[in-house]
Nucleic acid binder design. Sequence first.
DNA 1: TATGAATGAGATTTCATTCAT
DNA 2: CATGAATGAAATCTCATTCAT
Lengths: 229, 229, 229, 229
Amino acid sequence: MTAGHIIMGIEERKTREKEKRRYLILRKAKRLILERGIGSFSMQDIALACELSKATLYLYFENKEAILIEILEEAISEFTQVASQRIPVEGTGLQALQALWATYLELLGESQDLVILTGIKNYLDPEFPFGDAQASEKFTRATAGLVDLIESLLHRGMSDGSVYNSEASGRQARTVIMIATAVIDTVSRVPRPQRDTVLMRNSMRNTFELILRGLASDKVDRSTLWLSQ
Amino acid sequence: MTAGHIIMGIEERKTREKEKRRYLILRKAKRLILERGIGSFSMQDIALACELSKATLYLYFENKEAILIEILEEAISEFTQVASQRIPVEGTGLQALQALWATYLELLGESQDLVILTGIKNYLDPEFPFGDAQASEKFTRATAGLVDLIESLLHRGMSDGSVYNSEASGRQARTVIMIATAVIDTVSRVPRPQRDTVLMRNSMRNTFELILRGLASDKVDRSTLWLSQ
Amino acid sequence: MTAGHIIMGIEERKTREKEKRRYLILRKAKRLILERGIGSFSMQDIALACELSKATLYLYFENKEAILIEILEEAISEFTQVASQRIPVEGTGLQALQALWATYLELLGESQDLVILTGIKNYLDPEFPFGDAQASEKFTRATAGLVDLIESLLHRGMSDGSVYNSEASGRQARTVIMIATAVIDTVSRVPRPQRDTVLMRNSMRNTFELILRGLASDKVDRSTLWLSQ
Amino acid sequence: MTAGHIIMGIEERKTREKEKRRYLILRKAKRLILERGIGSFSMQDIALACELSKATLYLYFENKEAILIEILEEAISEFTQVASQRIPVEGTGLQALQALWATYLELLGESQDLVILTGIKNYLDPEFPFGDAQASEKFTRATAGLVDLIESLLHRGMSDGSVYNSEASGRQARTVIMIATAVIDTVSRVPRPQRDTVLMRNSMRNTFELILRGLASDKVDRSTLWLSQ
DNA sequence: TATGAATGAGATTTCATTCAT
DNA sequence: CATGAATGAAATCTCATTCAT
């Protein structure tokens, strides 16, 4: 208990309380998704888990959709930020992608937030990455940072010759994102993750390693393309 | 009432009529899934499309789930059968896999049945390929043939040196199946496929090509690993 | 029990049963409106009154609105039909209007359906007679017959000199309809009508008499413009 | 802090502040009713408009109903007061009624307060003018002044022969009040009044003119019974 | 065999009102 | 005095499934 705490005014305390509630709701919602899968996820369920009334949820979020979007945004922005820091400035684009996925696997072990990431995405916008931009505007905004990052790394890899350069380079980026998205999504649907966290992480590591090998140009020594356990 | 009818027997005729109805229901259900996506189609919708009553559906299928399982089984078994025939007896395991996916893309253009394949899978058994075998017994049975086929091709490739041989060869098979599964699933969620069939097929072709390159050992000339348009 | 009853097939009997249910729902809904006013009128209430489940109501009507529209249409069409028959072919336009309202009061005594007529109208389309035609299309269709009838009678009266001819003859029609509408509406809100049916009918008779006197041109002997009790 | 403030007294200042708030709430509520119609405005809406919290509203008014009643009383009493002044002491009862409605139309153009008058009435007391006095006591109190005024003018008109004297003179008064009430009510439901203020005023002018002509005895030259634009 | 009819359970959302601070 | 926070109750509507005929 420091002097700082005493100084903190009522205003500030209330704001913090409110943030706490928001966070509580998001946390419980996340946990519900992780435990039961995205399918069975009702406002009633969240309310019960938070020991709040359904009506109260609407004080903190406009919509059911708003809750999902917020979880998604938070998870994505946290991941993008951490990953950006971990990616070495020097080195090839392929190595950068390797670092990106290594970070993913590492964070996955800690919080599992990332698992639900694209599960939510697909729930909100099942047409991605095909749908019209119009409808999926919110989602596009939320994921823009991550998509941009991956695209830039692919371009970097194509420039430095570490990434296999197919005729249509733009399509390559799309494909990689879709595969990653799809796999994470599939994994995210698994309801009771505690039980087989290790198995899941292994599956994703294998997947990312396979993608890396698929992306690698012939110049690259592919035996180096593994992600640490 | 001809002699022929008498010979066929009432019993047999009834059985055939029943089979016809089952087939009608499955066909219409498939079409609905393809048109609207798996999320939003109800027993009511199927009944309407078949010009039957909802109650009648329950005479032929125990459940909504049962209908989906049957569609899944049919699509898989048809694909497995056709693919088995197309795969060259001679040639490497990798070439065999290449042929497998080429077949997939080809059939996709014709019937699109295959698109719904894993869409249904995820609806039925979101835990695959992680869940306990107990729970996903039905699904496992339905997909057994295809899983076996892919596994055998991978093993063949590892034996003849065309497939990159990681330490854990069994895991490799799982991973490949999961990626394919996941990507097809993601693609299968797009509700109105008529509009962007070409886009979808391109996405999947890119994906399969990437996987093939990822699987290829260093001995293989990777520039040959493309799937025809 | 005639031979006709025996001949009546299952098909026909079912259709009649279904009609009965529809009618039951409409009748109970009407009664609820009459008893409690339009304000407190929920699907739950109707379901309870009919001893049916809420879901069942949706088998017979697409919407809550659909129920109201049907009640409205039925009441209006019945009234318009009966009124048309009662209106003398010969005689002035004013006398025709007199006959119209006499019919209204008479039917009101029998069924009270007509009371709720414009109550529903205002619930469905509060902007009438001002709103844009776009939004109130359904209502316009339902009431078209009656509005046409009143307008034609007013024109007839203006032609034969029995109705006071203000500069803008079209506006006159609108005004009359609005007054009638408004008054009936006001009356229709009274929840427990059994108690003061007589009072209500008197009020409306007075109103219609006042309107008739207001419409009458100077040529008309206004002492004849009363509506029988 | 000036001497003036000290003289005014804390008590008095508080009272004035409180009055200010009450007034603010009433004013904003009125505006909301005029803008959106009575059906769709919530306590939340008022609170937002006043930049107060919902809870605060309950410090000044017991109920949502209480707010409506107060608006009603204020509008009526203001109108009654102004109208009383405008009504010529000399002249017939019919001329007095003409002046009354002319005043109404004039004030309507300025403030539109009066439009909401009976809209509120019907919301509060749908049974008027039929219900038992017991239930609608509050409303009766609020409208007493205006009802008294109209009744007295009608009696005056019947006395001086300008108003058509039906057998039951008391009933005549009731009817007139109900018509006016009903028409104003109907008009008041139109949500966006800015757009068609002119249309609304025309409708009401026509209505009042029709009523005047209906009330006029045969002695009166009915061509004089118009209300200026 | 076929089905029309019925429904329980549940989904999201709104709103007037209360209460501790 | 003021309010942020909370909520019970209610509203409309959907859907997989059952059952008597």
